[in-house]
Design a protein around this nucleic acid. Sequence first.
DNA 1: GCACTACATCGACGATCGTCAATGTATCGC
DNA 2: GCGATACATTGACGATCGTCGATGTAGTGC
Lengths: 112, 112
Amino acid sequence: MAARTKTATDPIACCTPVRTDSLDEVDAELLARSFAALSDPIRLRLLSFITSAEGEVCACDLVEPSGRSQPTVSHHMKILVDAGLVTREKRGLWVWYRAAPARLDALRAVLG
Amino acid sequence: MAARTKTATDPIACCTPVRTDSLDEVDAELLARSFAALSDPIRLRLLSFITSAEGEVCACDLVEPSGRSQPTVSHHMKILVDAGLVTREKRGLWVWYRAAPARLDALRAVLG
DNA sequence: GCACTACATCGACGATCGTCAATGTATCGC
DNA sequence: GCGATACATTGACGATCGTCGATGTAGTGC
């Protein structure tokens, strides 16, 4: 899959799996940042909510089920977007999020 | 695989994949703790060093390549062991670590 | 018993994190 | 223009994290 293909635009996909080879410092830094995005239960639930919905999810539908304030949810969504796990699109007054399965595939590939 | 089998002794394996279903709070908390163990570059490199070696690795061989002090490496190894990603066995004066591939498989299953 | 070794634990430090209330910014309808 | 809405940003707070030096705890060999 794409996870095994080395490209200049996807620093995650270039990393060698933890299970088969030793990581250099640069790869370890990049991977650690991605796993850090998954290291908070609120972010895991936000991501799960988006990936389990087919298509896209409005930001306004994330605040209430997460049980956190609007600024807090916005903060966590920014972390997920920056990690490449979710894409963000503003249309009019609303923001729509979509899962980025390629990055999840890449992280999964690193674990084995 | 074992990751799909519900067992009372493996709280990770019981969790539903992020990609297919919504996580409840308990699963999210457990998973977040496991991913947090992978969210530090030093721990990723320590884990990579152990998993890439066939068999076991002595704790004394982890300090120098990690570039951290002995207490710091001991601290990180404890986190990896507590996360179930590595097993620890003391024999005489030395401590030997082994990868725990089942837990890595479980985490990978959660990502997809 | 004693000295030595390998690793763990403690205590402290600055840095980062998660959280919220307050405020800022962009977009809509009028 | 104005007011209302949706989301982002700021600033602050306590909590947790990564790190190290110092110390503690087993185990070995004498």
